[in-house]
Amino acid sequence: MKKLLLLIPFLLIAFTSKYLPNYNIDIHCDKILHKKAFDICYSCKWKTPILVVYKVDGNLIDAKNLSRKSLRFRPDYNLPTKCRSYSKDYSRTGFDRGHLAPNAVFDYNRAIQKETFLMSNIAPQKPQLNRRLWAKIEKFVRIQARKYKDIRVITGVCGSLGHTW
């Protein structure tokens, strides 16, 4: 049985993803990025993802548990220069670099893990949100994937992005 897990409510517009083949999400994306295991709807104005869609195979959760220690946040060179964000953009802002497609879901494949550390998959999150509630949400996704074996996840940003920088 396939389940769709919607983590954050948001306004919908035309974004299609191979991970949600029967859905047409009505959202404006300046750039759509297709990664190995997830798709990103990206805003050049805010230099952040608007939403990310991915599939979780419950059989692969905890399959290898590759470490994330050597992974570093990197710019996504598939974006035009004017659209890119950089890890240094977060220095002294008080915000964490929050993954929308979480690294732990893809810790069975190093190439996919590296893509989760691209800045196109990162949104500003307050530390308390990122380290507590968001970590619990990511754990919940892994639990549901183990239970249902195949789930689809949509994560997105909300709030006034203009006030985060």
Rank of each mutant, 00 (worst) to 15 (best):
114 K>R: 15
47 K>F: 08
11 L>F: 04
1 M>I: 13
76 D>P: 10
64 K>V: 15
9 P>Y: 04
126 K>W: 06
33 L>Y: 09
31 K>Q: 14
82 K>Y: 14
64 K>C: 12
33 L>I: 15
28 H>Y: 11
74 R>L: 14
78 N>C: 02
69 K>T: 11
39 D>I: 12
48 T>L: 09
61 I>S: 02
151 I>M: 00
132 R>L: 07
129 L>R: 01
37 A>R: 13
129 L>Q: 03
165 W>G: 15
72 R>L: 08
8 I>M: 06
57 D>E: 11
99 H>M: 08
88 K>S: 15
35 K>E: 15
49 P>S: 07
106 F>P: 08
44 C>G: 07
29 C>D: 10
36 K>M: 15
71 L>V: 08
155 T>N: 13
88 K>W: 11
145 A>I: 00
20 L>E: 07
163 H>S: 10
34 H>R: 15
103 N>D: 14
120 S>A: 15
122 I>H: 03
28 H>T: 13
114 K>N: 13
79 L>A: 09
108 Y>H: 10
165 W>I: 14
117 F>I: 07
93 T>P: 07
142 R>F: 00
115 E>N: 10
91 S>H: 11
137 I>V: 08
12 L>V: 09
30 D>V: 08
22 N>V: 02
132 R>M: 06
22 N>G: 14
45 K>L: 05
98 G>H: 00
83 C>Y: 04
151 I>Y: 01
163 H>D: 11
152 R>I: 12
58 G>Q: 02
36 K>D: 15
9 P>H: 02
103 N>W: 03
165 W>Q: 13
13 I>Q: 09
136 K>D: 04
45 K>Q: 04
151 I>Q: 01
79 L>T: 08
142 R>Y: 00
137 I>N: 01
91 S>Y: 12
27 I>T: 14
19 Y>E: 10
100 L>M: 11
23 Y>T: 14
27 I>E: 13
140 F>I: 01
76 D>A: 07
25 I>L: 15
3 K>A: 08
134 W>E: 01
84 R>V: 10
139 K>T: 03
81 T>P: 06
128 Q>N: 08
160 S>E: 01
73 F>H: 05
63 A>M: 11
152 R>V: 12
114 K>C: 04
33 L>Q: 10
67 S>C: 04
40 I>F: 12
129 L>Y: 10
44 C>M: 05
50 I>R: 12
86 Y>D: 08
36 K>C: 11
51 L>G: 09
37 A>T: 12
142 R>L: 00
142 R>M: 05
129 L>A: 02
60 L>M: 13
45 K>A: 05
64 K>H: 13
105 V>Q: 04
12 L>K: 11
130 N>I: 03
79 L>Q: 07
85 S>W: 04
110 R>W: 03
153 V>W: 01
70 S>Y: 03
70 S>D: 09
108 Y>M: 05
133 L>H: 03
63 A>G: 03
70 S>H: 05
159 G>A: 00
14 A>D: 10
57 D>H: 09
65 N>W: 07
78 N>P: 01
54 Y>M: 13
46 W>E: 08
157 V>R: 01
129 L>H: 02
